[in-house]
Design a protein around this nucleic acid. Structure first.
Lengths: 215, 215
DNA sequence: ACCTGAACACCGTTCAAGT
DNA sequence: ACCTGAACACCGTTCAAGT
């Protein structure tokens, strides 16, 4: 017996493009993201995803209960990455004051949403998604708690304009969420902002918001 | 000849539920709105709309080029009503100062969006809509122009905190848009706000925003 | 002038049968 | 254990034929 390992296993475990074994799930997820990128969320059909992955129309249903579950799985991946991006942005502001950290969260959110419009779209399009998944809920709760703590700390340190802290939090969140949605919905041009500048402009808007809630 | 008029025309022009003559268009629009209300935007199928209106599957295509055109028509009606609602809210603040008028626009937007979630959803879901229609574009441009004028006037009168006026405008718009989207996307519960209170809470957030951009 | 009803090429989902 | 391929009940859209 020749040792097949030597010839075959250049890569850790899986070598060939044969999903006909184990990684169909990931392949389907990838194909879905790509399809959304090319044709938009509405254009996602399980059949087309199957076709692009080279499997039969029924195959995806072995991995996802239905179309919604497929999209929800994409949303979970997206949310993970969003949380990570926001976390990194927050990490970069480690020595900053609480208000600047709060800002860093917003910046991280905006940057990620503008850089990954497809993923953001899937997250924010509750319609095609089962949002009541623990993964999605929990990470959201964590973020909100952090924002609340930061602004409370800012208030204690006298950095924050007087006012209801949780309303500043909600306002900040609605602001960046609104900006990100306006972007993926293509509304910036009708608001006098060139699409190419929309991220920078959004950051400027956020900064002016932060400035206006500063003490 | 007996005069048929006397027996038939109790109502102005059209008496019977026969779309089989003139008002199919409106009937289809109504059925679409109702369907969205019951099942959500995604559930809208031309066939189901036709079924509910009592016509054959092909009939709607005599009035709307395709599914998107049908949804776009709903969006146009919705946008009209939104503009009207905002206009009325602005009218109620006739003798107020520019900043309060700016606030009135936001309040009008929020009230309308929260009271008519279906229509707001159709407007904001660019995906299923042809937004590049003059009707939609123009009314949007008008609103933006008004907001800009109001804040510029507020600045002149010394009512506004120093800063870039058009960024306050964009921020205000993103804020109310974000709040409204969070509402229709059912995000308020995960942000610690009871659904029933979401309009009042949103107004409070807007008010705190207005306060923070005041001189 | 407007609507019907059959037709075509899709789609989501299921399930027996294959490997 | 996982995938295929046929099947079913849908859908958007078109178009000849009816009134």
């Amino acid at each position: 017996m020749a040792t097949p390992k030597a010839t075959v296993s250049r890569l850790p475990k899986k070598t060939k493009p044969s999903y006909h074994h184990g990684d169909l799930r990931r392949a389907l997820l990838d194909a879905t993201v790509q399809l959304i990128e090319e044709q938009g969320l509405e254009a996602v059909s399980v059949r087309e995803v199957a076709r692009r992955t080279g499997v039969s129309p029924g195959a995806p249903f072995r991995h996802f209960q239905n179309r919604t579950a497929l999209l929800t799985a994409v949303a979970e991946v997206a949310q993970e990455r969003l949380v990570q991006a926001v976390g990194e942005s927050l990490g970069d502001a480690e020595k900053a004051n609480p208000l600047q950290k709060f800002r860093a969260i917003g910046i991280g959110f905006l940057r990620w949403a503008f850089t990954n419009p497809t993923h953001f779209q899937v997250i924010s399009g509750r319609a095609s998604i089962e949002f009541d998944r623990p993964t999605l809920r929990d990470s959201n709760d964590g973020l909100r708690a952090t924002m609340n703590q930061l602004l409370s700390a800012a208030a204690t340190e006298g950095l924050l304009r007087p006012g209801d802290v949780s309303r500043y939090v909600l306002g900040g969140r609605a602001l960046v969420y609104g900006l990100a949605r306006m972007h993926i919905d293509g509304q910036f041009p009708s608001w006098g902002v060139d699409s190419a500048d929309s991220l920078n402009e959004s950051i400027a808007v956020l900064d002016q918001f932060i400035a206006s809630i500063s003490a």
